[in-house]
Amino acid sequence: MKIEIKNLKKRFNDNFVLKDISLTIEKNKSTIILGQSGCGKSVLIKTIYQLFSFDDGLIFYDGKAKVDIDKFSMLFQYGALFDSLKISENIAFTDFINNKTNFNKKVISLMNDVGLDKSIFNKYPSEISGGMKKRVAFARALYKNPKVIFLDEPTTGLDPINSDKINELILKVITKRKITAVTITHDIKSAIKTGDHYYFIDKGIIQDKGDCKKILKTKNKAFKSFISGADFKQ
Protein backbone atom coordinates (compact mmCIF):
# COMPACT_ATOMS: atom_id res chain seq x y z
CA MET A 1 0.00 0.00 0.00
CA LYS A 2 1.27 3.45 -0.93
CA ILE A 3 0.59 6.19 1.61
CA GLU A 4 0.87 9.89 0.73
CA ILE A 5 0.81 12.59 3.38
CA LYS A 6 0.37 16.23 2.40
CA ASN A 7 0.85 19.22 4.71
CA LEU A 8 -0.17 17.31 7.84
CA LYS A 9 -0.67 19.37 10.99
CA LYS A 10 -1.40 18.01 14.45
CA ARG A 11 -1.51 19.84 17.75
CA PHE A 12 -2.18 19.03 21.38
CA ASN A 13 -3.84 22.06 23.02
CA ASP A 14 -1.71 24.99 21.79
CA ASN A 15 1.36 22.92 20.99
CA PHE A 16 1.84 22.03 17.31
CA VAL A 17 3.67 18.69 17.34
CA LEU A 18 3.46 18.24 13.58
CA LYS A 19 3.69 21.63 11.86
CA ASP A 20 3.80 20.71 8.17
CA ILE A 21 4.60 17.14 7.23
CA SER A 22 4.57 15.91 3.65
CA LEU A 23 5.97 12.50 2.81
CA THR A 24 5.36 9.40 0.72
CA ILE A 25 5.52 5.82 1.97
CA GLU A 26 6.18 3.61 -1.04
CA LYS A 27 4.45 0.26 -1.47
CA ASN A 28 6.46 -2.77 -0.27
CA LYS A 29 9.38 -0.54 0.73
CA SER A 30 10.83 0.16 4.14
CA THR A 31 10.51 3.81 5.15
CA ILE A 32 12.41 5.07 8.17
CA ILE A 33 11.32 8.09 10.21
CA LEU A 34 14.23 9.54 12.15
CA GLY A 35 14.29 12.28 14.73
CA GLN A 36 15.06 13.20 18.30
CA SER A 37 12.89 12.00 21.19
CA GLY A 38 9.76 14.14 21.44
CA CYS A 39 9.92 15.42 17.86
CA GLY A 40 6.55 13.86 16.99
CA LYS A 41 7.58 10.59 15.29
CA SER A 42 5.18 8.42 17.31
CA VAL A 43 2.39 10.98 16.90
CA LEU A 44 2.98 10.87 13.13
CA ILE A 45 2.63 7.09 12.78
CA LYS A 46 -0.34 6.98 15.16
CA THR A 47 -1.99 9.68 13.03
CA ILE A 48 -1.30 7.70 9.83
CA TYR A 49 -2.76 4.63 11.61
CA GLN A 50 -5.86 6.76 12.41
CA LEU A 51 -5.39 6.31 16.16
CA PHE A 52 -5.21 10.14 16.35
CA SER A 53 -7.20 12.66 14.38
CA PHE A 54 -5.32 15.53 12.70
CA ASP A 55 -5.96 19.25 12.46
CA ASP A 56 -5.08 19.95 8.84
CA GLY A 57 -3.64 18.26 5.77
CA LEU A 58 -4.40 15.14 3.74
CA ILE A 59 -3.54 11.45 3.96
CA PHE A 60 -4.14 9.16 1.00
CA TYR A 61 -4.00 5.38 1.26
CA ASP A 62 -3.53 3.99 -2.27
CA GLY A 63 -5.08 7.24 -3.47
CA LYS A 64 -8.11 7.05 -1.13
CA ALA A 65 -8.81 9.17 1.93
CA LYS A 66 -10.26 6.24 3.93
CA VAL A 67 -8.75 2.88 4.78
CA ASP A 68 -9.68 -0.26 6.68
CA ILE A 69 -7.19 -0.24 9.55
CA ASP A 70 -7.35 -4.03 9.60
CA LYS A 71 -4.73 -3.81 6.83
CA PHE A 72 -2.34 -2.18 9.33
CA SER A 73 -0.37 -3.54 12.25
CA MET A 74 1.88 -1.97 14.82
CA LEU A 75 4.84 -3.05 16.90
CA PHE A 76 4.88 -0.80 19.95
CA GLN A 77 8.03 0.55 21.56
CA TYR A 78 7.77 -1.65 24.65
CA GLY A 79 5.69 -4.41 23.09
CA ALA A 80 2.38 -3.44 24.75
CA LEU A 81 1.62 -7.08 25.44
CA PHE A 82 -1.46 -7.84 27.55
CA ASP A 83 -0.13 -8.90 30.96
CA SER A 84 -3.10 -11.06 31.91
CA LEU A 85 -2.94 -13.18 28.76
CA LYS A 86 -0.57 -15.99 27.82
CA ILE A 87 1.93 -15.54 24.97
CA SER A 88 -0.20 -17.62 22.58
CA GLU A 89 -3.32 -15.61 23.51
CA ASN A 90 -1.41 -12.35 22.98
CA ILE A 91 -0.26 -13.40 19.50
CA ALA A 92 -3.69 -14.65 18.45
CA PHE A 93 -5.51 -11.93 20.40
CA THR A 94 -8.24 -11.16 17.85
CA ASP A 95 -9.14 -14.84 17.46
CA PHE A 96 -8.78 -15.55 21.19
CA ILE A 97 -11.26 -12.88 22.30
CA ASN A 98 -13.70 -14.00 19.63
CA ASN A 99 -13.63 -17.50 21.18
CA LYS A 100 -11.92 -19.13 18.21
CA THR A 101 -9.80 -22.06 19.34
CA ASN A 102 -8.01 -23.24 16.21
CA PHE A 103 -5.18 -20.72 16.31
CA ASN A 104 -2.43 -22.89 17.85
CA LYS A 105 -0.91 -24.01 14.55
CA LYS A 106 -0.73 -20.47 13.16
CA VAL A 107 0.75 -19.17 16.43
CA ILE A 108 3.46 -21.84 16.48
CA SER A 109 4.31 -21.13 12.83
CA LEU A 110 4.61 -17.39 13.59
CA MET A 111 6.68 -18.07 16.72
CA ASN A 112 8.99 -20.08 14.52
CA ASP A 113 9.18 -17.24 11.96
CA VAL A 114 10.22 -14.71 14.60
CA GLY A 115 12.66 -17.06 16.31
CA LEU A 116 10.72 -17.91 19.45
CA ASP A 117 10.84 -21.28 21.16
CA LYS A 118 7.59 -23.24 21.60
CA SER A 119 8.32 -23.58 25.33
CA ILE A 120 7.02 -20.05 26.01
CA PHE A 121 3.65 -20.77 24.35
CA ASN A 122 1.80 -20.93 27.69
CA LYS A 123 3.92 -18.42 29.60
CA TYR A 124 2.89 -14.88 30.57
CA PRO A 125 4.68 -11.71 29.35
CA SER A 126 6.15 -11.14 32.83
CA GLU A 127 7.97 -14.49 32.55
CA ILE A 128 9.98 -13.68 29.41
CA SER A 129 12.86 -11.32 28.55
CA GLY A 130 12.66 -7.90 26.83
CA GLY A 131 14.01 -9.27 23.54
CA MET A 132 11.45 -12.07 23.58
CA LYS A 133 8.65 -9.59 24.29
CA LYS A 134 9.62 -7.65 21.14
CA ARG A 135 9.48 -10.86 19.12
CA VAL A 136 6.09 -11.79 20.61
CA ALA A 137 4.80 -8.29 19.80
CA PHE A 138 6.19 -8.66 16.27
CA ALA A 139 4.45 -12.04 15.90
CA ARG A 140 1.20 -10.45 17.12
CA ALA A 141 1.60 -7.67 14.57
CA LEU A 142 2.11 -10.25 11.79
CA TYR A 143 -0.81 -12.46 12.90
CA LYS A 144 -3.42 -10.60 10.87
CA ASN A 145 -1.29 -10.59 7.69
CA PRO A 146 -0.99 -6.80 7.44
CA LYS A 147 -0.30 -4.87 4.24
CA VAL A 148 1.50 -2.15 6.23
CA ILE A 149 3.41 -2.58 9.46
CA PHE A 150 4.39 0.32 11.72
CA LEU A 151 7.39 -0.30 13.95
CA ASP A 152 7.84 2.12 16.84
CA GLU A 153 11.50 2.02 17.88
CA PRO A 154 11.81 -1.76 17.53
CA THR A 155 15.32 -1.90 19.02
CA THR A 156 14.78 0.39 22.04
CA GLY A 157 15.92 -1.17 25.30
CA LEU A 158 17.81 -4.00 23.65
CA ASP A 159 21.55 -4.68 23.78
CA PRO A 160 23.51 -4.31 20.48
CA ILE A 161 23.46 -8.06 19.76
CA ASN A 162 19.71 -8.38 20.28
CA SER A 163 19.12 -5.12 18.36
CA ASP A 164 20.99 -6.57 15.41
CA LYS A 165 19.00 -9.80 15.61
CA ILE A 166 15.69 -7.87 15.67
CA ASN A 167 16.81 -5.76 12.67
CA GLU A 168 17.69 -8.88 10.70
CA LEU A 169 14.39 -10.44 11.65
CA ILE A 170 12.42 -7.36 10.53
CA LEU A 171 14.30 -7.23 7.24
CA LYS A 172 13.77 -10.95 6.60
CA VAL A 173 10.05 -10.91 7.41
CA ILE A 174 9.07 -7.75 5.52
CA THR A 175 11.02 -8.88 2.44
CA LYS A 176 9.56 -12.40 2.53
CA ARG A 177 5.98 -11.26 3.12
CA LYS A 178 6.20 -8.17 0.87
CA ILE A 179 4.93 -5.80 3.56
CA THR A 180 5.19 -2.01 3.46
CA ALA A 181 7.12 -1.03 6.60
CA VAL A 182 7.28 2.29 8.43
CA THR A 183 9.89 2.32 11.16
CA ILE A 184 10.52 4.98 13.77
CA THR A 185 14.00 4.99 15.16
CA HIS A 186 16.86 7.19 16.27
CA ASP A 187 19.34 4.42 15.69
CA ILE A 188 21.25 5.27 12.47
CA LYS A 189 22.72 1.76 12.22
CA SER A 190 19.22 0.22 12.23
CA ALA A 191 18.02 2.77 9.66
CA ILE A 192 20.85 1.93 7.24
CA LYS A 193 20.37 -1.79 7.74
CA THR A 194 16.56 -2.05 7.44
CA GLY A 195 15.45 0.99 5.42
CA ASP A 196 15.00 1.98 1.80
CA HIS A 197 14.03 5.65 2.28
CA TYR A 198 14.37 7.92 5.26
CA TYR A 199 12.76 11.11 6.50
CA PHE A 200 14.33 13.18 9.24
CA ILE A 201 11.87 15.18 11.38
CA ASP A 202 12.90 18.10 13.54
CA LYS A 203 10.73 20.77 15.17
CA GLY A 204 7.58 19.35 13.56
CA ILE A 205 8.78 19.51 9.93
CA ILE A 206 10.70 17.25 7.54
CA GLN A 207 14.28 18.55 7.55
CA ASP A 208 15.86 15.94 5.31
CA LYS A 209 14.96 12.89 3.21
CA GLY A 210 16.72 10.44 0.96
CA ASP A 211 18.08 6.97 0.40
CA CYS A 212 18.97 5.08 3.60
CA LYS A 213 22.20 3.78 2.09
CA LYS A 214 23.35 7.40 1.70
CA ILE A 215 22.37 8.63 5.17
CA LEU A 216 25.97 9.25 6.21
CA LYS A 217 26.53 11.45 3.15
CA THR A 218 23.77 13.88 4.06
CA LYS A 219 24.49 17.59 3.68
CA ASN A 220 21.67 18.74 5.98
CA LYS A 221 23.24 20.43 9.03
CA ALA A 222 20.53 19.46 11.49
CA PHE A 223 20.61 15.81 10.42
CA LYS A 224 24.41 15.73 10.41
CA SER A 225 24.34 17.08 13.93
CA PHE A 226 21.73 14.43 14.90
CA ILE A 227 23.95 11.68 13.48
CA SER A 228 27.07 12.91 15.23
CA GLY A 229 25.19 13.50 18.49
CA ALA A 230 26.07 17.20 18.63
CA ASP A 231 23.52 19.84 19.65
CA PHE A 232 22.49 21.79 16.56
CA LYS A 233 21.22 25.35 16.90
CA GLN A 234 19.41 26.80 13.88
Binding site: K46, Y49, L51, I69, D70, F72, S73, M74, F76, Q77, Y78, A80, L81, F82, D83, F93, T94, I97, R140, K144
Partner: peptide, 16 residues
Protein backbone atom coordinates in the same frame (compact mmCIF):
# COMPACT_ATOMS: atom_id res chain seq x y z
CA UNK B 1 -1.15 0.97 33.57
CA UNK B 2 -2.55 -0.35 30.29
CA UNK B 3 -2.77 3.24 29.06
CA UNK B 4 0.77 4.10 30.15
CA UNK B 5 2.19 0.96 28.51
CA UNK B 6 0.24 1.61 25.26
CA UNK B 7 -1.93 -1.50 25.71
CA UNK B 8 -5.05 0.62 25.07
CA UNK B 9 -3.50 1.79 21.77
CA UNK B 10 -2.62 -1.84 21.03
CA UNK B 11 -6.30 -2.78 21.50
CA UNK B 12 -7.26 -0.14 18.94
CA UNK B 13 -4.69 -1.42 16.45
CA UNK B 14 -6.13 -4.91 16.92
CA UNK B 15 -9.54 -3.54 15.94
CA UNK B 16 -10.91 -4.08 19.44
Amino acid sequence: TMRVTEQIDALKTLNT
